[in-house]
Simulated assay, not measured.
Amino acid sequence: MHARFKQAALFSVKLLLSIAVLVYIARGLDLQQLRTHLVSINPLLFILALALIFVQTFALNGRWELIMRALGVSLDWLAGWRILMISLWFNQVLPSSVGGDAVRMWLLRQRGVQWPEAVKGVAADRFTALIGLIVLMVAGLPVLMSRVSNQAAILAIGGLTLAGVAGTVVLLTLDRLPKRLIALPAIASFVRFGTLVRFLLLRSEHRGLLFGSALFIHLVTAAACYALARGVGAQLSVVDAAILIPPVVLLTAVPISISGWGVREGAMVACLGLAGVPSEEALSVSLLLGAVSVIVGLAGGVIWLASPERGSYSADKAAQAAEEPPGYGLAKAREVSSHP
């Protein structure tokens, strides 16, 4: 009962935050103009954006399959894609994307994959995506500085980028700490995880393809946003989309709202505003991107309805997995050295 109350309270807080941010953004906008942008979207460009995000799921699954293979797990491509699509559905209906990841782990266990490999595979997939995002932000920062005169915005995005770089470096080098520190249970799990990611990106057989896919996937998101922006008549260049969408994606990934709603809209309005895109157009791009994500998620919902695992699914178990502290599952993982 306590766990369900905690889950309901968390969901309520995130829902209120999403609504509050959306209301705050809408207060200063011309809502009639916003409605006009949404209903007058070029249908062909909307379909293009939808196709890009759908095709992106194939690349996402390919990256995940490479990671699982490096862990010694043979994951059938079609089975992996089905699991990924189902997780995207749960991303829409659970309080955060962490819930979708918990479902991914649960479905892997149903296929006989051991818990340590399931946890490491999903967590490494997430962190590899984060590294790709940070690399794009680092690469785009000089371009951003040459195209944007707003110093406060440059400092904010630069600070966000620097924080991402620092966090990544710290995690990947935790095993360099004194042995008495890395032996502590609270740190040891993160040390093993950092060692795993470093192995995947630096020493695994498919490291080039793995890293390249991480960059490609985020560029596809930027391309979808560019298509939506052009579809509502926004004057957004390809270069601006490539350097301004990654910060939006990074902020949206922070699990403080329902599926990123509200946070994504605020970040999109702020970032695209740096390229001269009016707030109404920027907000319409974000809302349309959210609609695209919902449509792709609904496709995953259809797959879930036909899934043989649905009868044994436990929402309580998935919620419990989603609520575990970051190091909990990783603490159950075996040493990375067991998977050279």
Rank of each mutant, 00 (worst) to 15 (best):
V269K: 11
V294H: 00
L272C: 12
A275K: 08
A299S: 14
I295T: 07
G276Q: 14
L289T: 05
G266L: 13
L283K: 09
G297Q: 06
V294E: 02
G273S: 15
V263W: 06
A282Y: 03
E281P: 01
V296I: 06
A270I: 03
A299T: 05
V263L: 11
V263F: 07
A275R: 08
P278R: 14
I295E: 04
A270L: 14
V277Q: 07
G276D: 10
V294F: 04
V263S: 11
V277I: 08
V292N: 11
V263C: 06
G297P: 00
L287A: 03
R264Y: 10
L283W: 08
S279I: 02
A299F: 12
G297C: 01
S284Y: 01
C271E: 15
A267I: 04
S279Q: 15
S279G: 15
A270Y: 10
L289E: 07
S279E: 14
L289C: 02
G273Y: 01
G290C: 00
E280H: 02
A291P: 04
R264S: 06
I295D: 01
A299R: 04
S279N: 14
I295G: 04
S284V: 01
S293T: 11
E280V: 08
L298G: 00
G290H: 01
E280A: 09
R264I: 09
S284K: 03
G276P: 05
V294P: 00
A275D: 10
L283N: 14
G290I: 03
L287Y: 02
L298N: 04
V296L: 03
S286Y: 09
G276H: 08
L287N: 03
S279P: 07
V263H: 04
L272F: 12
L283H: 10
L287H: 04
G300D: 04
